[in-house]
Structure formats: C-alpha cells, structure tokens
C-alpha cells in the first residue's frame, strides 16, 4: 500500500513539475516571438507609411506589406481582429525572418489600431 502511495505521489510531483516547465516554455517562447515582432514593427514605422504596397487577407488575420528598395513584400505585419500583431515577417535578407504567435494569439503583446488597419486595407482595395 505504502509503495503504491509513494508511486502515486511521485507521479503527481512529476506532473506538477511538467506543468511548471510547460508554462515556463510557453512564456519564454511568447516573450521571444513578441520581441521579434516588436522589432519588425519598429522597422515598419507608421502603418500609413508611403512604403505600404500590398495586403493579404486570411481567415485568421489580415496583413499589410511594406516595400523596401525593389522588394515589394519586404516587411509584413499580420493583425488579428483584436488588433494583435500575431505574425511579422522580414524578407529583406535571403531567408525570410519570421516571428509568429499564430498558435497562441492570446499571448501576442504588440498591438495596433485595428480600425486603422481596416482603413488601410480599404485604401489598398482589399475591402469593398
């Protein structure tokens, strides 16, 4: 009986430790992605920049794309319905640098005015 109790106790402890580790990983991952998203957001500057060149409409978010030199899609910010920037892409290099919290948008901390995004989408002809 004692042996079984000890085993049960060890299992509960192990699961509790795993919960702590899992939550720590979740926070750390979210913080890292938010940092990268914020960096790309800074590179974009004002949303209504003259370099705004294209859009993307997907069910889970809408994206604004900004031109740099010859690259029409150099910088991209993807914003969900709540105004959270859930994905940002920097395509200025050979390989796109992607920061994303698509899987966990509730932990995205970089925000923009959704109404402003919609206005710019309309300006680009995305929303009729």
């Amino acid at each position: 009986m004692r042996r079984w109790l000890a085993v049960a106790g060890a299992v509960v402890l192990a699961l509790a430790a795993l919960v702590v580790v899992g939550r720590h990983e979740r926070s750390r991952h979210a913080a890292s992605e938010n940092r990268k998203i914020a960096e790309i957001r800074r590179l974009v500057g004002p949303l209504d920049s003259p370099s705004l060149d294209a859009f993307r409409l997907l069910p889970q978010f809408s994206c604004l794309l900004y031109k740099r030199r010859d690259n029409r899609f150099a910088l991209e910010l993807c914003v969900d319905a709540q105004g959270r920037v859930v994905e940002a892409i920097d395509r200025r290099g050979r390989t796109p640098r992607i920061a994303s919290l698509r899987e966990d948008p509730s932990h995205a901390t970089v925000r923009v005015e959704r109404a402003e995004v919609d206005r710019l989408l309309r300006k680009l002809g995305a929303l009729s």
Binding site: D53, A54, F55, R56, L57, L58, C63, L65, R72, F73, E76, P96, L124, G125, A126
Partner: peptide
C-alpha cells in the same frame, strides 16, 4: 497585384 496572397502565398513561401 496588390494582394500578396496571389503572388507569394504564405503557405508556399519557403
């Protein structure tokens, strides 16, 4: 084309 999804779909980027 202004719609980037028609030119470089996100799911075919890499």
């Amino acid at each position: 084309v202004k719609d980037a999804e028609l030119v470089v779909p996100l799911e075919d980027e890499l």
